[in-house]
Design a protein around this nucleic acid. Structure first.
Lengths: 168, 168
DNA sequence: CCGAACTTTCAAAATTTTCTGAAAGATAAT
DNA sequence: ATTATCTTTCAGAAAATTTTGAAAGTTCGG
């Protein structure tokens, strides 16, 4: 298989995986493209590389930057902006997990809290069961959330230097 | 807040969370509805509870059963089928994680394997870098995958009885 | 200031995903 | 074997998401 062909395949696969995980296809593809590009790429290069419009490119690159897994790179003497993806997959995964937790899990946890505030007669079986369900979801989510924090913190500190090299 | 109101809210929230994680809104809502229902529900009850069509109901209930987090329950002397959700959130989470791994992560890992098969000259820098990237993704994914297996196995065995009670 | 080079925005169009409802398929009682 | 009850299917409709591209905005050198 030719190199370019392999890159192309990789980009497609990454796009599909993205969709399945609730990320839009193009965003995942741009990420893949940058991942396998030895050099930072300009908006125009991304556009022609993936055959997508300027607006689409701009929008999704910006979102990738929000996620902290793509950065803007300026080349001296060039007017254009270039973009490059974080190449360390472990770092990418940590950022994504951390960010999803912040954006999605935390708001839900808050919302759940309000739900426990129910007017119920003393012996109201149903209300009790409902509150139990909510409680158990909360307990689970907050444990998971702590687990993530732990992982991230580990990574940010010394652990990064040693054990985690195994993942690379 | 009234109990029904709270349930309603919960269902909506769960629907939103589902969308963000690549699960369709209705499926998540049906799951939520069953989660907070003290009794198993029939297709008709789900339809009227969520104001959705029969087809939609049938399709999504079936999918939830595929995921192993909802089951069909037959009541003696009733012609209808009833459905009930797994109430233990830890079990739900394990099933989902395990299933997503099987359906999504494993196929990608396979696909990646083929990509390393590249015709490259000996000193081909670019090809080398590409292969490195693919390798590191594979290594990461397979570690993560093993981690999941470990978690699941733990859960299936004795651990369930002890430490994991913390999550409930 | 002006204009060239580039980036951002956003309304409308295209695409993808989800949902509906009627028809066809089961199953069981009579 | 007929009918009543319930489930499944699926083509077309509706809704949601994504993409486009042209116009507006920005920035910089001269």
């Amino acid at each position: 298989m030719k190199l370019d062909e392999a890159k192309q395949q990789f980009i497609q696969n990454w796009g599909v995986l993205g969709t399945q995980w609730g990320i839009n296809r193009t965003m995942a593809q741009i990420h893949a493209l940058l991942l396998v590009s030895p050099e930072p790429m300009s908006a125009d290069e991304i556009m022609s590389g993936l055959k997508i419009s300027r607006g689409n490119t701009n929008m999704n690159v910006r979102e990738l930057m929000d996620w902290g897994i793509v950065e803007k790179v300026l080349k001296p003497g060039e007017r254009k902006e270039f973009f490059s993806a974080e190449k360390d997959i472990w770092v990418v995964a940590m950022r994504i997990i951390k960010e999803r937790k912040r954006r999605e899990v935390e708001p839900i946890l808050n919302a759940l809290n309000q739900l426990k505030d129910i007017d119920a007669g003393k012996g109201d079986k149903d209300a009790k069961q409902f509150i139990d369900t909510i409680n158990s979801i909360q307990k689970f989510a907050s444990q998971a959330s702590k687990g993530v924090d732990g992982l991230v913190k580990m990574d940010e500190h010394w652990f990064a230097g040693t054990l985690l090299k195994m993942f690379k």
